[in-house]
C-alpha cells in the first residue's frame, strides 16, 4: 500500500483494473480469435459466437492481470512498464491477483457452458500456459522465453475455430503455428531496441543473453520459416487463392524487412530504424493475414471464387 497509514486508501479506479487486462494486446487476441471463428467451416449462432469471443478476451485479460501481478517488481524497473497500475501503486497486488483469477474462471466456465467444453479446456490451457508456464516458470529462466510465450498468443484463433467445429483439425493447428513462428521475430525486433530495459531487471531476453548477432540470426530463421508456413493452409487445400496471394505478398514483405535486421549490427546511438520498421510491420502482417483468411472464407461461401 502506498498511501500513508493514517489515510483511508482510495478505492482503485476501474480504469486501472481495465488496464490490467492489457487492452492493446487484447485487440490482437480478439481479432485473431474472431478470425479463427469466422474462418472455421460450419456455422455458429451469433450469440454463441459473441460469447466465445468474449470468453477468449476475458481469458486473455485474466492471464494478463495474473502476469502483471507476478511481474509487478520487474515492471517497476522498466521505463515502458513503470506506470502500470501495480508498479505505480494505484492497485493492490492481491486485488490484481484476485481479479485475474476471477476473469480466468468466469471465461472458462462460461465458454464450457455456453459454447463447448473442448474450447473451454483449450482456453484454460492457454491461461495456465501464459500465467504459469511462461510468466512464472520460463520467462525468468531462459532466453527462449519469447518462443515459448508465443504459444500463449497463438491459442486464440485455435479456440475460435474449435468453438465452431468442436474438434481440433490440421487448420487450427496451422493457425496456431503461424502465430507461434511470427512471435519471435515480432518480439525480438522490439527487444533489440528496448534491450537495456530488460537487462536492468534481469530478464534473460535473447539480445541480452546471447547477444545481438545471435538474435538477428534467429529473427532471420523464424522469418524464413514463416514464409512457407503461412502458405501451408493453401497447400493443404484449407483456403483459396485470395488467402494464398495475400499470405505470399505479406510474408515476402515480412521476410524482406527482416533481412536488414538479420544482417546488420547496431552502432553507438543507433536509431534502430530497421528493427522498428519490422516490429511495426509485424503487427500489420498478422492483422492482414488473418483478415485475408476471413475474406477468403467469405468469398468461398458466397461463391465468388
Amino acid at each position: 500500500m502506498t498511501q500513508p497509514a493514517t489515510s483511508l486508501a482510495l478505492p482503485a479506479d476501474w480504469r486501472d483494473f481495465f488496464a490490467l487486462t492489457k487492452p492493446r494486446v487484447m485487440t490482437l487476441v480478439i481479432f485473431t480469435g474472431l478470425c479463427g471463428l469466422l474462418a472455421a467451416p460450419g456455422s455458429i449462432h451469433p450469440v454463441i459466437g459473441f460469447t466465445a469471443i468474449l470468453c477468449i478476451a476475458l481469458g486473455a485479460g485474466g492471464a494478463a492481470a495474473l502476469n502483471q501481478w507476478w511481474e509487478a517488481d520487474l515492471d517497476a524497473g522498466m521505463k515502458r512498464t513503470a506506470n502500470r497500475p501495480l508498479p505505480a501503486g494505484r492497485l493492490k497486488g492481491t486485488d490484481a491477483r484476485d481479479f485475474g483469477i476471477l476473469l480466468s474462471a468466469v471465461s472458462v466456465g462460461v465458454m464450457g457452458v455456453a459454447v463447448n467444453w473442448l474450447s473451454a479446456i483449450i482456453l484454460a490451457g492457454s491461461i495456465v500456459y501464459y500465467a504459469v508456464i511462461y510468466t512464472i516458470w520460463l520467462k525468468p529462466r531462459t532466453p527462449q522465453n519469447i518462443v515459448i510465450g508465443g504459444g500463449a498468443g497463438a491459442f486464440p484463433p485455435m479456440i475460435g475455430w474449435v468453438a465452431v467445429t468442436g474438434d481440433v483439425t490440421l487448420m487450427p493447428v496451422l493457425l496456431f503455428s503461424i502465430i507461434f513462428m511470427w512471435t519471435p521475430p515480432h518480439f525480438w525486433a522490439l527487444a533489440l531496441f528496448v534491450k537495456t530495459d530488460y537487462a536492468n531487471v534481469g530478464i534473460p531476453m535473447m539480445p541480452v543473453v546471447k547477444g545481438e548477432k545471435s538474435t538477428r540470426r534467429q529473427i532471420f530463421v523464424y522469418s524464413a520459416i514463416l514464409l512457407p508456413l503461412a502458405l501451408t493452409p493453401w497447400f493443404i487445400g484449407g483456403t483459396g487463392l485470395i488467402y494464398a496471394i495475400a499470405a505470399l505478398a505479406l510474408s515476402l514483405a515480412f521476410f524482406a524487412l527482416s533481412l536488414p535486421v538479420s544482417f546488420r549490427q547496431s552502432g553507438q546511438n543507433d536509431s534502430m530504424r530497421p528493427e522498428k520498421r519490422l516490429f511495426a510491420f509485424s503487427i500489420i502482417y498478422l492483422f492482414a493475414l488473418f483478415a485475408a483468411l476471413v475474406v477468403d472464407r467469405v468469398a468461398a461461401n458466397q461463391g465468388w471464387i
Binding site: 478505492p11 482503485a12 450469440v47 460469447t51
Partner: peptide, 24 residues
C-alpha cells in the same frame, strides 16, 4: 466519486451478463 464510478461499472457488467445469459 471513485466509489460511485466503480459501482456504475460493476452494475453495468452485471446487467450485461444478465442479458447475455438470457440470450444464451
Amino acid at each position: 466519486k471513485r466509489q460511485k464510478s466503480r459501482n456504475w461499472v460493476v452494475g453495468g457488467i452485471l446487467l450485461f451478463f444478465v442479458v447475455l445469459f438470457y440470450a444464451i
